[in-house]
């Protein structure tokens, strides 16, 4: 399928999912109430539609889009279908910084948690960039990322362990489980510039990611400036992940699954994959948020929990299929 056609199909799918998400919620609205919501934005149905459901759908779309983009960038850079921001520790580092801010009571400062998440993601990205400047093998970078992920996972557990207040602990836990519940337009506005910057960097890196399919040495011989490519790719992926964590907390597997779901349609081209993967990530998360709201439970399912429950078996499937391709 042509790249533009694939992106268009995904965009249409995303739009349908967003429209659907406007019809799903705790309060069932009648046809008359929907009409009222469109006519009078300040009415009660209008408030539900435009101040609760629509910003929530936008937050889900931006978060999923950011994770889908980050996953596609990292998989292209590392030439590995198992790479994603979670595996490389970017999400864990961002979550640790957010947890630290919540527990220290700074969460009341507007934007503090989001900024902390970004700092964490960029710091991890910086660490990965420094590592990759010295070590060429992509497998080594993945192992380094796994180590970062484990370390900051443990550090977050330590934050829990030493947290002075059960309220703060509950807040951190809610953050770690990932959710787009009660997100405002402003929350999305915070994340959007980083996502667009990430998208710009991804587009800059796209031809290099395609060239990397030949391996690093052949790509360098073909005129690829590896240092610049790595910087653009890692910075782009870190910014996107930071935006996602800042907006919705930790949500796993979207970054892993989204590129995989459209890879064949994009003819396995890592450059052609970037936008469709981002749109697929957005579609997955908006759809998952709708489904999570439809599951009849006393407490609403957390989005991160829901995506992990679906994503973990998918991860196993990808690993199995990848192992088969490595044997050829």
């Amino acid at each position: 399928m042509r790249a533009q056609g694939l992106s268009l199909a995904m965009a249409v799918g995303l739009l349908v999912a967003i429209v659907l998400s406007l019809f799903v919620g705790e309060v069932a609205l009648s046809g008359e109430q929907y009409r009222q919501a469109f006519q009078d934005l300040a009415s009660a149905p209008g408030e539900i539609l435009w101040q609760v459901r629509a910003p929530r759908a936008l937050a889900a779309a931006l978060t999923g889009g950011a994770l889908g983009l980050a996953g596609a960038i990292l998989q292209g850079l590392l030439r590995n279908p198992l790479a994603d921001p979670g595996v490389l520790g970017v999400s864990a580092t961002a979550a640790f910084m957010a947890a630290l801010v919540i527990v220290s009571g700074l969460a009341l400062v507007p934007g503090a948690v989001e900024t902390a998440a970004w700092i964490g993601a960029l710091a991890c990205g910086g660490g990965l960039a420094l590592f990759t400047a010295r070590v060429r093998e992509p497998e080594a970078l993945i192992l380094f990322g796994v180590a970062m992920s484990s370390f900051f996972g443990a550090a977050t557990a330590l934050v829990f362990n030493l947290s002075p207040s059960p309220i703060a602990t509950a807040e951190v836990l809610a953050w770690l489980m990932g959710s787009v519940e009660a997100r405002s337009w402003l929350d999305s506005l915070w994340a959007a510039p980083a996502l667009f910057l990430a998208l710009f960097l991804a587009m800059r890196a796209a031809p290099g990611l395609k060239m990397l399919t030949l391996g690093e040495v052949a790509a360098e011989a073909s005129g690829l400036r590896m240092g610049r490519l790595k910087m653009a790719a890692i910075l782009g992926a870190s910014l996107a992940t930071g935006a996602a964590v800042a907006l919705a907390g930790v949500i796993g597997f979207v970054g892993l699954a989204a590129p995989h779901l459209v890879r064949r349609l994009a003819r396995e081209d890592p450059a052609r994959l970037l936008i469709p993967s981002s749109l697929t990530g957005a579609l997955i998360l908006v759809a998952a948020d709708v489904l999570a709201r439809l599951v009849p439970t006393d407490q609403e399912l957390k989005l991160g929990v829901f995506t992990a429950l679906i994503g973990a078996p998918l991860f196993a499937l990808i690993a199995w299929r990848a192992a088969r391709s490595w044997r050829t």
């Binding site: 030439r79 590995n80 990397l212 399919t213 030949l214 391996g215 040495v217 890879r263 003819r267 396995e268 081209d269 890592p270 391709s325």
Partner: peptide
């Protein structure tokens, strides 16, 4: 080395 990362 002839390993290609993706099946383009």
């Amino acid at each position: 080395e002839r390993r290609l990362a993706w099946g383009m």
